[in-house]
Simulated scan of single mutants.
Amino acid sequence: MSRLTDTLVGVGSNPEGVLASVYLARRNLARNSLRSTLAILGIIIGVFAIATLGILGSVIQLTAADALGGLGDQVIVSPNADAGIERLTDRDVTTITRAVGEDATVIPVVTGGALVERGEARTFAALYAVERPGDLFAAESGELPERHRRGAIVGSGVADELDVEVGRTITIEGREYRVVAVLGESDGFNLLQPDGAVLIPRTAFADESYTQVIVRAESGSQAATAADAIRASVNAREERVSILELSRIVDRIDQFFGLLNAFLIAIGAVSLVVAGVSILNVMLMSVSERRGEIGVLRAVGVQRRDVLRTVLVEAGLLGFVGGVVGAVISGLVALGLYLAVPEVTLPVVVNPRTAGYLVFAVLFGIVISLASGLYPAWRAANERPVEALRVK
C-alpha cells in the first residue's frame, strides 16, 4: 500500500495518479464482491429498461412511419357534401391543376364497386378509374399504360382470388375486359386499396365525374402550399371542396409516438434512479468501513481531491460496467425483436436512433452513479485524519 500511497501523494492529478485511483477503486469494490455485484445489477436493470423502452418506442414509431408511406406529401380533395356538391367536374380538376402548377401532380379518381367474374370464380372488387395509373401504382406483371383507355388492371388480391394473369379476360357487369397488368402487392397504407381493386377506363363508368382528386407533392411543406392554393382558387366563391392534408395527420401520429417514447424512457429512468440510491448506500457503507484506511492516507499526505477522486472512480466503475452490460443486453433484445416480428425491418432496428438510445442509457447510468457517489466521496475527503484514525 505504501507504493500506491507514494503514487497518490507524488503525482496528484497526473495520469499515474488516475491509474492509481482506478486500481484502488477496483480493489475496494472487490473487497465485497456481492455488494458490488448487486449494485451493478441495479444499474444493468436501469440501463436495460431505458435503452429497451426507448428502442421499442422508436421501433413502433418508425414502423408506423413506414406503414404510412408517403402519405405526408398527399392532399385529398373531395366534393363538399355539406354544400350539396357530390361530384367533381373536369372544370374543378382544371382549376386544381392550375392552382398547384408544376409543384405537384394532380390525379383525379373515379371510384365504384362491382362483382368481378372469371369463369365460375367471382369476387367483389372496388373499381377505380385513374387516367395515368403509373402516378399511383406499380405493376408486378405486364405494363401500366401511360393513359388508361382500354383493358383492366387487376390488383394482386383480385388476381389471386380469380387466378387471373396478364392476357386473360374478366367480366364486370356483363362487359369483358382483357387484363393488361397485375399490380404489385401493397406494402404500406394507401388511400386507394389496390390489392382488392380493378382499374378500368373512365368511360366504363355510368357517371364519369370524379369522386376525389389526389394531389401529390415532393414534400409535406409543398403539399401544404398546394392545399392553400386549392382553397384560394376552388373555394374562392363557395366551399365546393373539402381538403384533407395528410401531412397534418402524419405529424399528429408522429407527435403521439414521440410522446409515448418519452413516457417509456421516463419509466425506465425511474428504475435507474432507484439503482442510483442503491449505489449511494453501497458507497456510504464502503466509506464507513474504510474510515481508518482513509485516515491513514490523509495522515501521510494524500490530498482531499485524491480521496474524492478515488471514491468517485469506484462509483463510476459501477456505472460503467453496469451500463455497458445493460446496453449489450438491450441490443440483443432489439435484434431478437427483428427476428421474432416479421413487420419489424432491419433498417428500423439498426439505425442511428437505436445507437443513440444505447449510448444515452450508458451515459445516464454513469452520470447517476457519479451523482450517487458525490456525497460519500465528499464525506470521505473531508474526514479529519485524527477522527478517522480513532476508528477501530
Rank of each mutant, 00 (worst) to 15 (best):
R3D: 01
L4E: 09
D6Q: 07
S13Q: 11
L19S: 15
S21N: 09
T37Y: 03
A39G: 08
L41H: 09
I44A: 03
A51S: 09
I60N: 03
L62V: 14
T63D: 12
T63V: 10
A67V: 13
G69R: 05
Q74L: 15
I76Y: 03
P79L: 09
A81E: 14
R87P: 00
R98H: 02
T111D: 05
A125P: 04
A126C: 07
A126I: 07
V130I: 14
G134Y: 04
G134V: 06
L136C: 00
E140W: 06
E143P: 09
G151C: 07
G155N: 04
S156P: 06
V164I: 15
I170L: 15
R175H: 12
E176M: 03
L191H: 00
D195T: 11
V215F: 06
A217F: 08
S219W: 07
A227H: 05
R237K: 08
R248M: 02
V250Q: 06
F256W: 13
I265W: 02
G268L: 02
S278P: 00
M285C: 07
R290W: 01
E293W: 00
R309N: 08
R309I: 10
G316F: 03
L318A: 04
V325E: 02
A327G: 12
G336P: 15
A340E: 12
N351D: 13
T354L: 01
T354N: 04
A355I: 09
L363D: 06
G365M: 12
A371W: 10
G373Q: 04
P385N: 07
V386A: 12
